[in-house]
């Protein structure tokens, strides 16, 4: 199942795309992720993740209109596919399941 494995960073990217809804493209994703995690995310790392997600079929993309601020280039808007949502849900279920089974003692909340 290596092909559909969702890495931590990739998961974050997917979720960010969902949060941003209609306005998810390179710059916004980076800004959003950056401000939420407080991490300095490099363009290269983000695009690597986007490319992998695209390869796995978790996201699709389409071009928007050209803008002057991008030197006349079009924005590429990303959308999470059904498969992507499914993968996110699976990941969440897995975590929830694990969370529920963690003994309370281990969390120090006696």
């Amino acid at each position: 199942m290596k092909g559909t494995y969702l890495g931590e960073f990739q998961e974050l990217v997917l979720l960010t795309i969902l949060v941003l809804a209609e306005n998810a493209y390179g710059v916004t994703i980076q800004d959003e992720l950056g401000s939420r995690t407080g991490r300095n995310i490099s363009r290269g790392a983000l695009h690597t993740a986007l490319t992998r997600l695209d390869e796995k079929g978790f996201i699709t993309s389409e071009y928007g209109g050209a803008t002057a601020e991008r030197g006349g280039r079009r924005k590429r808007f990303y959308k999470v596919t059904n498969q992507g949502t499914k993968a996110l849900e699976e990941s969440k279920t897995l975590r929830d399941q694990l969370w529920s089974e963690v003994p309370k003692v281990a969390l120090g909340k006696s």
């Binding site: 390179g26 710059v27 363009r43 695009h47 993309s61 601020e69 991008r70 030197g71 280039r73 590429r76």
Partner: peptide, 15 residues
């Protein structure tokens, strides 16, 4: 396939 996207993002960043 990636050039337009990346170059666009970088240019926005640049400004």
């Amino acid at each position: 396939a990636l050039v337009e996207d990346i170059a666009g993002d970088l240019e926005e960043d640049f400004n």
